[in-house]
Design a protein around this nucleic acid. Structure first.
Lengths: 230, 230
DNA sequence: TGCTTTATGCGTAAGTTTTACACAAATATA
DNA sequence: TATATTTGTGTAAAACTTACGCATAAAGCA
């Protein structure tokens, strides 16, 4: 049986970063083709002997110099039959989170055209990337409530108020500060450090750490992370 | 920029059916190639102008004559670089549920080699299909608790005991019959019919229906389906 | 120094949901 | 008519969630 198929496989990464109470998305400006100067997700074609995740890491490194904290497959988009005039492209989209400190860092490659955009102030996007992004944002919102991935968007050590703001920003909901803290502490996956915030105003706050090892251990014992809001 | 890529795109379907308190998976016997006579998931290569879901429906119809009740994209498997000796294959796996009545029906095409296997009595599988299947089973288990997809595995009208058995079989857990019924009824997405079971033993049981319209309406109002067990 | 402002840290009562458990009702069959 | 079998319903205790209020620790300023 002969197989003639003229489809190319690409990967795209939706990279989220969180900084100053805003959720941001990493985009790059297209340098070639009909869509020159439009913004797009980081991505590119997969090499014949390259695993899908490796392709994502490579593209991220090549185009933006960024190393992500968390990466998972999101969805495969393949129904836009004319995304590229040369051939059909099927794109395996990945969902990534980076630590907020990396937000400030300039990309270290030739891509000074990589830029962070607040999720609610996006430019017009190339291809079907707005659809992909919407899917990714929904996934982030859902995942936040049953997996402790918020920590991958924060510094290693963070304030409770940071975490709380992250949740209320991304979920677009108000949260009761006291119940939120109580709930998270009850999971017993956070660790107090000896350090304090150095903000000007108010009572200094303790810095906390996420204990991933402990979380993984608890998972095996049937523990179930879940945060819901009214 | 020239793109040379020698990868083919396939779709695979993991079709689940439920009958007589057993969860079954639909497999077909390979007729050609090195893996002749091994069992595999239903699937095949995507046509250049064919949407991914359409490819799945086509393959299912061609190879088994089955029309599914529920279909969703599961995951894209692309890291087995040598699944096919001719070229690399990336497979977009879909997750499907069929109504139990269809379990008895013979495939109406040339594929008398399609067969249902109980999930816990699977034959050796071709390619990486055992990995795919495991992923699918986990997805089914998870999804059962936050989306009312169990109904897609049952007849249009079903007994509460059927539903309860389905949950306890698939989740491999014991369920308190009374609390289960109470919980499900509290959602107000089931409808009593006037009909009763025709079993020989015991008190006749009412047949129920899932009211999908009502469920969809409730969803829009912020309703959240969830069934958990101790 | 002490008053005000700001944000953190903790406690508790009321409301809601989950869990555990037992008995009556409806049928078939001996 | 008694027995076996499965369905249908109720209720109290426990666990969890929600909605709040107040004391504490710093900084700024009069």
């Amino acid at each position: 049986m002969e197989i003639t198929q003229n489809i190319k496989i690409a990967v795209d990464a939706i990279v989220f970063g969180y900084s100053k109470n805003e959720l941001n998305v990493l985009l790059i400006k297209q340098k070639f083709g009909a869509l020159k100067n439009k913004w797009a997700l980081v991505g590119g074609f997969v090499k014949d002997d390259e695993k899908l995740q490796d392709a994502v890491h490579r593209e991220l490194l090549e185009e933006t110099g960024i190393k992500v904290n968390y990466l998972e497959q999101l969805f495969t988009f393949g129904d836009d039959l004319h995304r590229d005039p040369r051939f059909r492209v099927i794109s395996v989209a990945y969902f990534a989170l980076v630590n907020s400190t990396k937000l400030e860092a300039k990309p270290d490659t030739d891509a000074e055209e990589a830029q962070w955009f607040p999720i609610h102030k996006l430019p017009e996007l190339a291809f079907d990337h707005d659809t992909i992004l919407k899917t990714a944002y929904t996934r982030l919102q859902n995942k936040l409530s049953y997996q402790p991935i918020g920590f991958d968007l924060l510094n290693n050590e963070f304030l409770f108020s940071d975490l709380e703001n992250l949740y209320s920003t991304i979920l677009e909901k108000n949260i009761d500060r006291r119940n939120f803290r109580k709930k998270l502490l009850s999971f017993d996956i956070l660790e107090e450090t000896e350090k304090f915030s150095d903000k000007k105003n108010g009572r200094p706050a303790k810095l906390f750490k996420f204990n991933k090892q402990k979380y993984n251990k608890l998972l095996k014992e049937g523990f179930y992370f879940e945060i819901k809001f009214a």
